[in-house]
Write a protein that binds this DNA or RNA. Structure first.
Length: 163
DNA sequence: GCCAACGTTGGC
DNA sequence: GCCAACGTTGGC
């Protein structure tokens, strides 16, 4: 039996560093989601993200922040390789191969969408409970409820897979 | 570049 | 365990 996605996520990335187009151009349109360096965000990836989950690709710290596409989580959490790379801005000297501190999941491009801007999301009543919109929120990995996901998919014109 | 909000660090 | 100082995030 195929498993339907029960979990939805929003993952933030700065498009100047890695945007939806970069994911689309990646080998097999798949890339590890690296660089998460916040414990709460890490715990979501490590404990709750599952293969098959759908994730929204959010562009942050850019002229027009918002959701730019959809991707699928295609691996369990594994050690984030960048934590071991001395030259990487994500290098963590306290992390060891034996006891890695940070994890990544592999994500696969599903589709690029129109930009659903932060501003537009703020104006949608059904999305007012989103964590993304909560004051002071800075999490780069956050869960999205299935109701919220349905609204976002509909705003993006993406057919939601039947459940 | 500013700054509010939040997370982390480290002295005590 | 407290909390001040500092660093980071991210919208504007």
């Amino acid at each position: 039996m195929p498993r339907f996605p029960v979990n939805y996520w929003l993952l933030k990335s700065e498009p100047s560093e890695f945007g939806i187009d970069d994911l689309a151009k990646s080998n097999n349109q798949t890339a590890p989601w690296t660089g998460v360096r916040n414990y709460q965000a890490r715990n979501f990836l490590r404990d709750d993200a599952a293969e098959g989950d759908l994730a929204f690709f959010y562009h942050s710290s850019c002229p027009e922040p918002g959701v730019a596409g959809v991707m699928r989580i295609v691996s369990k959490a594994h050690a984030d390789p960048t934590q071991f790379e001395k030259a990487s801005p994500y290098y963590d000297p306290k992390s060891t191969v034996e006891q890695p501190r940070w994890v990544a999941v592999d994500v696969k491009f599903v589709k690029k969408t129109r930009l659903l801007s932060l501003e537009e999301m703020r104006g949608v009543a059904e999305l007012s409970g989103m964590r993304l919109l909560a004051r002071g929120n800075r999490l780069s990995v956050m869960p999205v409820t299935s109701d919220e996901a349905d609204v976002i998919l509909s705003l993006l014109g993406v057919k939601s897979k039947g459940r």
